[in-house]
Amino acid sequence: MDDKLTIKRLLIKINQFWRIIATAIGFSLFGLGGLFFLWLIWFNLLRIFVWNKTQRAIIAQYSISLSFKLFLWIVKLLGIISYQFNGLDKLKQDKHCLVVANHPSLLDFVLLASVMPRCDCMVKESLLKNFFIGGIIKTADYIPNTEASRMLPHCQQTLTTDGRILIFPEGTRSIPNEKIKLQRGAANIALRCQADIRIINIECWPPFLIKQQKWYDVPLKKPVFNITVGEKIPISNYLSENLALSARELTYDLTLKLSPK
């Protein structure tokens, strides 16, 4: 019995060591291959040959979605992670709405964008100055999280052209076993643009690529992501003359719906 237990522990350690190596391989391929090709070659060609900004952004978002899909196929093939989507048909039908999700892992955006070819995303304004990522963000016309006078017209234009905006209202990755705390940005955008909200719950166990965790800090067991496309919240239920109160109520309800069960 002791020998079997020792062998089992050894196999788990070997598998963990392999996943550390595979994670390095997967992320290197993604960084050097995907970002290099998209940023230096493909997106520059788009800027030269596609002059219509909206059309260029749609093509760029489709390209990002395909690259993420390929990346996830590689990391799944290498045994780094496993993932499963539930209720994906509901998400495919959504247009001119907000997609609001919790944020347990660094891979959340990659997972969701891989199944949403048309996906605008709210990003930190500071990322626009990033040498590698800034060009991709601008070409895809992602929405910087800046002052409302600049952000809201951008959101409204995106929603009017059948776009949908992905937002992680926590603002940063959540910490396991701690209550999530949402900012009111998502609620304010939904109310002011009068856009319905699609809820997505992301679970990952064991935790992987969480806040302040290094990429090589790989858990003993392979992480499994379970992504569930939930209900759609009609914004008409929250519209009132007091937008501040409505935003507070909506944020409270979103916190309940996005909290781990």
Rank of each mutant, 00 (worst) to 15 (best):
I143A: 02
K69M: 09
Q84H: 14
R173E: 05
T139A: 07
L72I: 07
I58D: 03
Q156I: 13
N145F: 09
N177F: 11
K138R: 15
K69H: 12
I59V: 13
L107Y: 02
V100M: 13
I59W: 06
G87D: 02
A140R: 00
N177Y: 11
R173V: 09
G163D: 09
Y83C: 11
Y62G: 08
S114R: 05
Y62M: 08
I136A: 01
F49N: 04
C119N: 14
R164N: 08
Y142L: 09
L127T: 13
V75K: 00
G79M: 07
R184N: 10
N52E: 11
S105L: 01
L45A: 12
V115M: 03
F49S: 05
R118L: 13
A140D: 01
R150Q: 12
L98E: 07
K138C: 03
I58E: 02
T146L: 00
K90C: 10
S82K: 15
E125Y: 08
N130V: 07
F131T: 15
L88I: 15
I175N: 03
I133L: 13
I48Y: 02
Y142S: 10
V110I: 15
A140W: 01
S149L: 09
T158H: 06
I74R: 01
C97G: 00
G79Q: 04
M122K: 03
L45W: 07
R164K: 15
I74M: 04
D120L: 10
I81V: 15
G79R: 06
S105Q: 00
K95W: 01
C155Y: 07
F71S: 11
D162F: 11
C121T: 15
L106D: 07
L77V: 12
F68S: 09
K69S: 15
E125Q: 15
M151G: 03
Y142H: 14
V75Q: 06
R150Y: 09
F85T: 07
I167E: 04
Y83S: 11
H154V: 00
M122S: 06
L77A: 14
P176W: 00
G171H: 10
I48F: 04
Q55F: 07
L112N: 06
L77K: 15
G135N: 12
H103S: 09
Q93V: 11
Y62L: 11
P176L: 00
A101G: 02
T139W: 04
L45E: 01
